[in-house]
Design a protein around this nucleic acid. Structure first.
Lengths: 120, 120
DNA sequence: TAAATGTATAGACTATACTCTATAGTTGTG
DNA sequence: CACAACTATAGAGTATAGTCTATACATTTA
């Protein structure tokens, strides 16, 4: 598909998709047979990749971190063992973030309770 | 306490504390009695405020959002009802973030499982 | 009391992640 | 075939959140 379709199907603007492509997060390829233009074709599988990038960003990972993981995972010639280790490490990081969020929630619940009791 | 102590007790650099003070997140006051300098005194209670700012940042809130909440909460002359509503709203936001993180975790667990099964 | 350390202010600089503009060429439609 | 809509590239501009430097005083301490 062309960039316009990729943009519509992911909800990410064309500008941002190009920005991601420059960073190496995604990659389209120009059809060698077509000589008249340099329009890039984007693979169907990029939809999932981009959704994953969006989720990871929401989870607080930087694009640099996400990029390293993508490079390792898809282009890194890693052994099965190494891939499992990477997944485990990332899962730990996500668990830590969930723990931090739960602390913030506890703080908010306490504040709410204090107000309800008329303590502040 | 002076800014140096506040920095040491919160782990936030003096530069960043001043940056926060410029944004209005925290406030020190110069002792009117002392004419020789303009050294600002920071209240003991700011330690908790700053720890809360740090946690909120980790939770993905921007300084602008944190600032609005602080202004509302501490200086906003809100009714008890309004404060409870604000707390409820923030708790909902945190819950959403936790949900998003759990999705990322599910994705990672699936990837790990796929690798373990030798599917990729 | 000289030197080291601390404080205040203003402004420059950096990194991250976009977001927009300009320019040039390509494709699809009435 | 005119022209609107799409694509590519490069580079400028923006917002957020710091981080650092320079300058000028003030305070502490050996």
């Amino acid at each position: 598909m062309l960039i316009n379709e990729l943009s519509k199907r992911t909800g990410v603007t064309i500008h941002t998709l190009r920005f991601y492509e420059n960073l190496g997060l995604i990659k389209g390829k120009t059809d060698e047979e077509v000589k008249s233009n340099k329009y890039k074709q984007y693979d169907e599988s990029l939809i999932e990749t981009i959704n994953w990038i969006i989720a990871s960003k929401k989870a607080g990972f930087t694009l640099a971190e996400i990029n390293i993981l993508i490079q390792d995972w898809f282009n890194g010639n890693l052994t099965l063992f190494e891939k499992i280790e990477i997944a485990k490490k990332k899962i730990k990081e996500v668990d830590l973030k969930i723990k931090e969020l739960k602390e913030v929630k506890r703080f908010l619940l306490q504040a709410k309770k204090d107000v309800e009791k008329g303590l502040c």
